[in-house]
């Protein structure tokens, strides 16, 4: 599992690479929280194009990160989920709090 972050203008881009499940959740959570605490960005875009697998443990991780960013009034967006991850995200209504970018 990899969490790759870069800042461009006022946006923090984070790419998740690999499989997000119970085994990698702690690593992803820690890395995202560190990136969030070090940032002065105005928005976060989470790129899921290289996330090859995610189950509902990932939903818990995403909701947790949304709450942390909300405290700082920073919106977060999701981009490029695979069909199967898109299905899980829709099922759990995540896009209502983290809209999907087209």
């Amino acid at each position: 599992m990899q969490v790759n972050a870069k800042t461009l203008n006022d946006t923090l881009y984070i790419s998740l690479v690999g499989e997000l499940d119970e085994n990698s959740a702690g690593f992803v959570r820690e890395n995202l929280d560190r990136d969030f605490s070090n940032t002065f960005c105005k928005q976060v875009i989470l790129d899921l194009s290289n996330l090859s697998f995610m189950d509902s443990t990932g939903i818990g991780v995403l909701i947790g990160r949304y709450k942390k960013l909300k405290e700082k009034n920073i919106p977060i967006f999701l981009s490029n989920p695979s069909n199967h991850i898109d299905k899980i995200l829709k099922m759990t209504a995540i896009y209502e709090i983290m809209p999907k970018l087209n």
């Binding site: 959570r29 189950d55 509902s56 443990t57 939903i59 818990g60 991780v61 909701i63 947790g64 299905k87 899980i88 099922m91 759990t92």
Partner: peptide, 15 residues
């Protein structure tokens, strides 16, 4: 308190 979605069985049921 552990950031769990509580969606495990729902996902199993839908998939």
């Amino acid at each position: 308190t552990e950031e769990r979605a509580g969606m495990g069985f729902t996902v199993m049921e839908s998939f």
